[in-house]
Design a protein around this nucleic acid. Structure first.
Length: 160
DNA sequence: GCCAACGTTGGC
DNA sequence: GCCAACGTTGGC
């Protein structure tokens, strides 16, 4: 299958592209939305590229690039009692929630802010630019991905 | 911090 | 199966 492209949101208080650059790799636990889970469990493949998006940030926007390094597997945090991601409905024999692993690829010098994405021709259909789109794991097209990466590489610290 | 938009839950 | 109530997300 051809390489696919995604956008994954995370609040900076939880994890940032800087954290990923330091760690080189992380697991994407804690997604508790069925649509997002299905993307991770069923569709993401090793090598797929990911726009790393900082939500609830100042400014919110895409901060870098990651890559899927491990395909969907059970989110074992859902089995850990007392963990904030614990969910009694998820059983080891029948996991309810899934996660993937991602590798660090690139950190932009500055965030590509959401307000800029909204103004760019070619990104009108991109889910994250649409009002009320809360999905934390979203598919993006190759074209959208490439536009955002090109923008990201032109960002400098001064432009924000 | 506010609040609109959305997803989920649960009573009926 | 409907839909009101509730909790969460996330831009601003």
């Amino acid at each position: 299958m051809a390489k696919q492209y995604w956008l994954m949101k995370c609040e900076p208080s939880a994890y940032t592209i800087d954290d990923l650059e330091r760690d080189r790799q992380t697991c994407w636990e804690g997604v508790r939305n069925y649509q997002a889970r299905n993307f991770m469990r069923d569709d993401m493949k090793v090598g797929d590229r990911v726009l790393f998006y900082a939500s609830n940030a100042d400014p919110s926007g895409v901060t870098g690039i990651a890559e899927i390094s491990k395909e969907g597997y059970p989110d074992h945090f859902s089995w850990k009692k007392a963990h904030k991601y614990f969910d009694a409905r998820s059983k080891k024999e029948k996991p309810l929630w899934y996660m993937v692993d991602i590798d660090f690829v690139e950190r932009f010098n500055a965030t590509v802010p959401l307000f800029l994405l909204k103004s760019i021709e070619g990104l009108e259909q991109m889910l994250v630019t649409k009002k009320g789109s809360r999905l934390s794991v979203q598919p993006v097209t190759k074209n959208e991905f490439e536009i955002v990466v090109r923008l990201g590489r032109t960002m400098t610290a001064q432009t924000t």
